[in-house]
């Protein structure tokens, strides 16, 4: 049996797994969970699979993984033969990647939360969520600015890693929660660089880069 992903189309976290599998060219079976409006992720059938009631969940044979960042690390380790996406033979890169994977959690808790509020009407402290998101985006902007001086387009180096995949969705989707990208030129360049990766797939809220279809105009 192949890979199975318990999935929800509007989840930025589930999209991390979908995007990474697309970039690696992996086939998988998607099992859709009715997060909204059905609330299926908090019902007993799904809680048997993931007691935390969160999405996504990756199943590979006997293995069930319920943490998005763990899913990315597992997929990279098992399927990335180039050792590009998670170079565990390099202690410095490993440490840095793990740091950005944790940072991705902050993006989920701030920009992701603001999006749930604005899009699905969830009750939460929206001002705190937006403020926290801008604070995180400023940190990301500062780092990407420095990476630019080093000639590096991505978070760790000149090639994308799972750190980029982990931080991309809730940064790109921030405007869904009223957090605009206007103040962050380095982030804007990085978002475009990820969207130009071969095999990239979009999700609702992240539009296709139509300029890549460059056959007419002028």
């Amino acid at each position: 049996m192949g890979l199975q992903l318990y999935d929800y189309v509007l989840s930025g976290s589930a999209y991390k797994a979908r995007l990474f599998m697309a970039l690696l060219g992996l086939d998988y079976q998607s099992v859709s969970i009715d997060f909204h409006p059905g609330g299926e992720h908090k019902k007993s059938d799904f809680l048997q699979i993931n007691p935390a009631g969160t999405l996504p969940v990756l199943v590979d044979g006997d293995l069930t993984l319920c943490d998005t960042q763990a899913i990315l690390a597992y997929l990279a380790h098992k399927f990335d033969t180039t050792n590009q996406w998670y170079p565990t033979n390099d202690p410095v890169a490993t440490g840095r990647i793990l740091q950005w994977l944790a940072f991705a959690g902050r993006l989920t808790d701030t920009a992701g939360a603001a999006r749930l509020h604005d899009m699905l009407g969830r009750s939460l402290d929206i001002d705190a969520a937006r403020k926290g998101a801008h604070k995180a985006l400023r940190e990301l902007e500062a780092h990407l600015t420095e990476q630019g001086f080093r000639g590096h387009a991505f978070l760790i180096g000149s090639k994308p890693t799972i750190a980029d995949i982990a931080c991309f969705p809730y940064t790109a989707l921030a405007p869904d929660g009223g957090i605009e990208h206007d103040d962050y030129p380095a982030i804007r360049k990085w978002l475009i660089a990820i969207r130009r990766l071969p095999g990239f797939i979009e999700m609702p809220g992240i539009h296709r880069l139509h300029d890549m279809r460059d056959e007419d105009g002028g």
Binding site: L209, H210, D211, E215, G217, G218
Partner: peptide, 18 residues
């Protein structure tokens, strides 16, 4: 500002007007 550039033209993302 949500639009895209092809050649010497800016296109609107909504209906693609150039």
């Amino acid at each position: 500002s949500f639009g895209f550039v092809r050649g010497e033209r800016l296109s609107c993302i909504y209906h693609g007007w150039q």
